[in-house]
């Protein structure tokens, strides 16, 4: 019984993550500014991916150290990559 519940919770988190992936990525082919796409991609690629990994964590608690490391590195790398992309792409436009 508890196995069923944890399995369901895990799949629910994964489904939430995949939904966020689709929502955030669906803005990518539209004609919007780069920074707007960065906002939506941070929803999909950071928050959606974290939700998916939490779902995996519920399904497979024995591997928690590496999954926690995955969440940390995912959050830090993707956030800082967003900042670097925003900084580098706007640096050519205005010099301050």
């Amino acid at each position: 019984m508890t196995e069923n519940i944890t399995s369901f919770v895990g799949y629910a988190f994964i489904a939430l993550g995949i939904f966020l992936w689709f929502w955030g990525t669906s803005f990518l082919p539209r004609k919007r500014s780069l920074l707007f796409k960065l906002h939506t991609l941070s929803v999909s690629d950071i928050l959606g991916s974290i939700a998916i990994i939490i779902g995996l964590l519920v399904k497979l608690p024995s591997e928690w150290p590496l999954l926690i490391l995955a969440i940390f590195s995912l959050a830090i790398w993707n956030t800082i990559l967003g900042y670097v992309l925003a900084y580098c792409s706007s640096a050519g436009v205005d010099h301050e």
Partner: peptide, 27 residues
């Protein structure tokens, strides 16, 4: 600080100036 600003999806830090100013892009 840059991490905190950029992690929330509505705001992205673009540039960090001296004396504690950040240029932030907001939706």
């Amino acid at each position: 600080d840059v991490f905190l600003i950029t992690f929330t999806p509505k705001t992205i830090a673009i540039k960090h100036h001296k004396y504690g100013w950040y240029k932030v892009h907001r939706l």
